[in-house]
Amino acid sequence: MALNEKEKSCCCFTDTDILKQIAAIASKWRDRPDMLIPVLHEVQKVAGNGIPKDVAMTVSREMRVPLSRIYGVETFYAFYSTEKRGKVLIRLCKSAPCHLKGAKDVLDAFEKVLGVRAGETTPDKMFTLETCECIGACDVSPAALIDDTVYGDLKPENVSELISLLRKRA
């Protein structure tokens, strides 16, 4: 399957160098379909926190796994996205213990400070704000997983400071 003209010109068109890196990652696991999930994790990081179609096609070709299966897997699991996301991924927990401890107010604060709604990316492509289910940090509810780090005991009034800190670090 090839990309049509519309897909080539859209924002999901991935840089050739990056596609080469992706091919290198995926080719290590040729004919090892069981490694699809770890490969997609690694590839997604390189490709800008998402797995657009040209990236999926590269993985498919190198691992010799049908594109349909890759699409099936990447749409099944919450950690993958078929579109590129921001540099920093904010996953705000909304499950019951965090909900009880005011997760909604924290979400409102994030939306206000970032100027985007849950599920959206800031125009500068720096942050993507997502809600998610329990991240296993209910001892510090309300909590968020920001990239690979847990931030707990979040308070609406501290969100703005946290965002500046993350911006500096990124």
Binding site: D34, I37, V65, V73, E133
Partner: peptide, 18 residues
């Protein structure tokens, strides 16, 4: 990769199988 159902034992096995 973020799916509660993968804690169910047979779903978990499918997930390890990719």
């Amino acid at each position: 990769a973020g799916a509660y159902i993968c804690g169910e034992e047979t779903a978990l096995l499918s997930s390890i199988e990719g």
